[in-house]
């Protein structure tokens, strides 16, 4: 599998299908994921506790109600639940937290001297860096306060309805 076969084919195989296989083979009944509402407009419609059916499909037309800190915590056998604790965090919140707790991270997120850095990381052929001179976490936070470039602007898989397609079929 590679991107020369076409982005949709490649993304479906490496993201959606791979994830589905993992859940199935391990028999997971729950997965905790770090997706956030501000990343993508279909993730903006997610629940904190989001059920998936036997095929891993997301029934976005019929999502469970969530109110008053009560979530869907019971579900029939054969299905699984995706838990999204960071749903209401923003990109800046993530960096603030990394700073506060001094969490190590991949240096591709920093400018390493060529005036570019990655805002979001995916597969190499389908991810491009942004122009940036941020070399520290503080500089990233400063940059994000002033930017109006979307976090995932460098992710080719988001183009058109890419994310929507992948997510309805079970991608995170």
């Amino acid at each position: 599998m590679n991107h020369t076969l076409g982005r949709d084919v490649c993304c479906t195989a490496l993201k959606t299908t791979a994830m589905k296989n993992l859940v199935e083979s391990k028999g997971y009944t729950g997965i905790i994921l770090g997706v956030r509402a501000d990343e993508d407009s279909t993730r903006a419609k997610e629940r904190y506790f989001s059920p998936r059916d036997k095929h891993g499909d997301w029934d976005f037309r019929d999502q469970p109600p969530e109110l008053w800190n009560q979530f869907k915590t019971t579900f029939p056998p054969g299905t699984h639940i995706r838990v999204h604790p960071l749903l209401d965090w923003t990109e800046i919140n993530i960096w603030e937290y990394i700073k506060a707790e001094n969490i190590p991270f991949m240096d591709l997120y920093l400018d390493r001297g060529d005036g570019t850095r990655y805002r979001s990381l995916g597969c190499a052929p389908c991810t491009t860096p942004i122009k940036s001179t941020a070399k520290t976490v503080d500089e990233i936070i400063d940059e994000l306060r002033g930017t109006n470039i979307a976090e995932r602007a460098g992710r080719a898989q988001d183009a058109g309805r890419g994310m929507e397609m992948l997510r309805k079929k079970g991608y995170m």
Partner: peptide, 22 residues
């Protein structure tokens, strides 16, 4: 259309599910 992300929402011109934006 900026926030009615789903194809189904845009086709029918209605919001199906709650979106959060910042």
């Amino acid at each position: 259309f900026l926030f009615d992300a789903f194809l189904e929402e845009q086709e029918q011109g209605i919001t199906i599910d709650t979106a959060r934006t910042f």
